[in-house]
């Protein structure tokens, strides 16, 4: 009898201890709302809006130089690490050797048969072999990465942009397996030693999170066009796919365009005008 009651006591005490542990967390959550009762959050009046942001890439207007410019503009201004960058050993001592297969990229140049592996025709128009195809996140309408993410760290904004919340990402890399376009990169290590000049207008990432193109959401919010558009000398146009009067839609109306792996049903928002 004695034995039994002691066990009961321990069980109850254990359950009570769990309850006590949870209590402060709940208080904290409750304090969230009262601090800013009358406050409001808003978008900048300059912000650009769209029902569904999309991109058209006029491949003919691209060449290797412009392609390089685009990647450079995007990567430097988003603090994407470059693992070929020589590490400043004074600021970052003990930086280990680099595995270049663990690289990070947001927008980059691919040959046609890599960008469109399912359109690899036997007798392809010769010029296609040499054109640089810029590939990036497609901001798919039915994004498999959004579906896969177990924490909603990757999610679709109302305006169609597939964004990552780097604060929330647990680094499971399910989204990387889910993405049919290889558009995602994982921070296998702290990226900072490999950023030549940190752009103060955009955060870097920490080790252990996935990252990708955000269609310059931070610039659209200020009423500016994405970096790639500005660096592309007219080869990249970004606009509202749902607006028949937008530049993107006008281009698509007049020209034949293709999308990557259309047959998968992900509905990419990046169109290639060839």
């Amino acid at each position: 009898m004695m034995e039994k009651s002691r066990r009961c006591f321990l069980k109850v005490a254990g359950i009570a201890a769990i309850g006590l542990g949870a209590a402060p967390a709940m208080n904290f959550a409750a304090s969230d709302s009262h601090g800013s009762a009358a406050a409001e959050k808003a978008k900048s009046p300059d912000a650009l809006h769209a029902e569904r942001w999309g991109m058209a890439i006029i491949v003919k207007k691209l060449n290797d130089k412009i392609a390089k410019q685009i990647t450079h503009a995007c990567h430097t201004q988003h603090n994407v690490p470059d693992f070929t960058h020589e590490v400043d050993t004074q600021a970052f001592p003990n930086t280990r050797a680099v595995n270049h297969k663990q690289e990070i990229k947001w927008i980059w140049k691919e040959k046609f048969h890599y960008a469109f592996p399912d359109k690899e025709d036997e007798f392809l128009n010769e010029k296609f072999h040499h054109l640089p195809f810029m590939v990036t996140c497609n901001h798919c309408k039915n994004a498999p990465c959004v579906q896969a993410c177990p924490t909603q760290a990757t999610f679709k904004r109302e305006d169609g942009i597939v964004v990552m919340d780097y604060h929330r990402c647990i680094g499971c890399r399910f989204c990387m397996a889910a993405c049919p376009y290889g558009s995602r990169s994982f921070n296998f290590r702290d990226p900072r030693p490999f950023i030549a000049e940190t752009d103060p207008d955009f955060p870097t990432r920490s080790k252990g999170v996935v990252e990708k193109c955000n269609l310059c959401a931070e610039r659209l919010a200020k009423g500016e066009q994405p970096h790639c558009v500005e660096a592309s000398e007219g080869a990249i146009v970004v606009g509202d796919l749902e607006d028949p009067e937008s530049d993107v839609r006008k281009l698509l109306k007049e020209h034949y365009s293709i999308r990557r792996k259309q047959s998968l049903g992900t509905e990419p928002s990046v169109y290639y005008i060839v």
Binding site: C149, P150, T151, C172
Partner: peptide
């Protein structure tokens, strides 16, 4: 094995804080 594979293991409980019924990992958990 799941934990050692995570890039940010300290944020592991985000799976419970933000349950995502569309993700198969949620059901796996």
């Amino acid at each position: 094995f799941i934990i050692v594979d995570l890039g940010q293991p300290v944020r592991m409980l985000n799976v419970l804080l933000y349950p995502s019924p569309k993700s198969m990992l949620f059901y796996d958990m």
